[in-house]
Simulated scan of single mutants.
Amino acid sequence: MARLSMEDASVRIRQLARAGLNAHAFFEVAGETVARAVPIGGAPPFWNTVDPSSQLITSIHFSGECFFDLGGQLEWEYFADDVNKTADVIANRRGVQTLHEVTGANPERSAVFREYLRPHGIDQEVAVALRAKTGEAWGTLRLNRSPGQPEFSADELAFLHSLAPHLAEGVRRALLLGEAVEPDWPDAPGLVVFGDGLSVESVSAEANRWLGELTGDLGGISAAVLSVAAQAGNPDGRAPVRLRADTGRWFELHSTSMATPAGHRAGVIIQPATRARISTVLMAAYGLTRREREITRLVLMGRSTTMIADELVIAPVTVQQHLKSIFAKTGVRSRRDLVCTVFVDHYAARVRDNEKRRVAARRERGGPIAPLPSRQVSTNDEPFCDQR
């Protein structure tokens, strides 16, 4: 594989992030691009996507055969006592860490290194958090090297750190498109596809609904949507546009490129700017109060009691009291059990569904599986998702 300069690889990744690819296609091409600038060995790039509101895994991607099956990977991530997991690298403020670094240059301390990596010719591993410029984590990337290859250098780690926001953008767009094309939530994003001259070619049912709120009695396509569509495919295009409808609801508009049988088209994703869907799941499944949902979400993201207390401006003892109630309602005894329970109940099915979608070349979707209608709480209760 021909080498690629870090500068050229960075330009290429920025272009790919806005190309409208599905998650697996994006990871395939982006992984090859990264590997041409940062040599790897022993295994191809390995990717996870996560729900930014809970940081729980929503899909797993790799090329070729993997020595972990899907169940084994999830078992290691959520039940094994080890280091350098997805949650660990996301919690790292720098967003980049090597196995040698977290084990004090003694990777034998890691069970997965002893039992899987080394037997398969892997001597080093670096993990990168795919963190957007706005701070949300959308996944992780892992690169490996074989015995005899040099350690990942400071320049290479800095380069990977610089790529993370662009890789995160590619993931975010891919998952938004997946939800817009095949929605499974009542507040799913909508998609408007434009042809030559910004003529409208198709409007999804959800997009039609959101356009109705944005344009009111005027109907048609708003100037804001057309302006965003004009940015599709531009690697230096502006950030998502936020605007408020007359109903008071806030929306985000995202531009993207769409590959269709008729050629490339401009697409605009219209998304209600509502809070994390994990709150909906937690309320519907366990009957948690608003404060308990807030605390559970922060526990899922690895926050300590002190950090939760500081973020919510409450006393640590109050956090502990809420945790006792949360544990009782969810039937667990510890924070770790809580994370495992929420993942198994609401995210494992998403990972397996996305694996089927990957094999069938269909677009993946993010977030937890939507609760069954029969499990929804009364509409007289407080809202599931609060507006920002």
Rank of each mutant, 00 (worst) to 15 (best):
T140G: 00
M301E: 15
E355G: 01
G31R: 12
R333G: 11
T86E: 15
P165L: 12
G195L: 03
H254N: 08
G135C: 15
Q231N: 09
S227E: 15
R277E: 08
V203H: 07
A370Q: 09
T379V: 04
L167V: 06
I122C: 05
D381E: 14
T49Q: 14
E382Q: 05
A111P: 00
D51S: 05
E115H: 07
Y347T: 08
S162G: 14
T86V: 14
W47T: 07
M1T: 14
M258H: 02
F113D: 02
G331L: 02
G41V: 04
Q55L: 13
A19K: 06
G197M: 01
T215G: 03
H161T: 06
F62G: 04
L175A: 10
A245N: 01
F68M: 12
V200T: 06
A87Y: 05
L226M: 12
M6A: 02
H254P: 01
I314T: 12
V193Y: 02
L191I: 09
L253R: 13
R94T: 15
W138V: 03
A245I: 13
T330F: 02
F152M: 08
T260R: 08
F113E: 01
F251R: 14
E77F: 06
G72V: 15
A284G: 08
G248V: 05
D386G: 07
T103A: 03
T274M: 09
Y347L: 05
L253Y: 11
W47Y: 15
F79K: 11
D345W: 00
L282N: 06
P147Q: 02
G248T: 12
A273R: 11
R293F: 06
A158Y: 06
C385H: 08
A23T: 09
E28Y: 10
D381S: 13
R336L: 10
L167M: 12
M258S: 02
I278E: 02
P373Q: 14
N22C: 10
V193G: 05
V281R: 01
Q149E: 15
V228H: 07
E136R: 12
L323E: 11
V225L: 07
A37Q: 09
F384E: 10
P373N: 10
R12P: 01
R244P: 02
R238W: 09
G170C: 08
A17Q: 03
A262N: 02
R335F: 07
H322T: 08
V317N: 03
M6P: 10
E32A: 11
H161W: 09
S199P: 00
P147H: 04
D155R: 04
G267F: 06
H322L: 09
A224S: 10
G190C: 08
I40P: 00
D381Y: 05
E179F: 04
P261A: 11
T215Y: 08
D123H: 08
L218S: 11
D51F: 09
W210Y: 14
F384M: 12
A223S: 07
N48M: 13
G42H: 07
F327I: 03
L218C: 01
P52D: 14
L175Y: 13
P368C: 03
P240D: 04
L99H: 05
W185V: 06
R36Q: 12
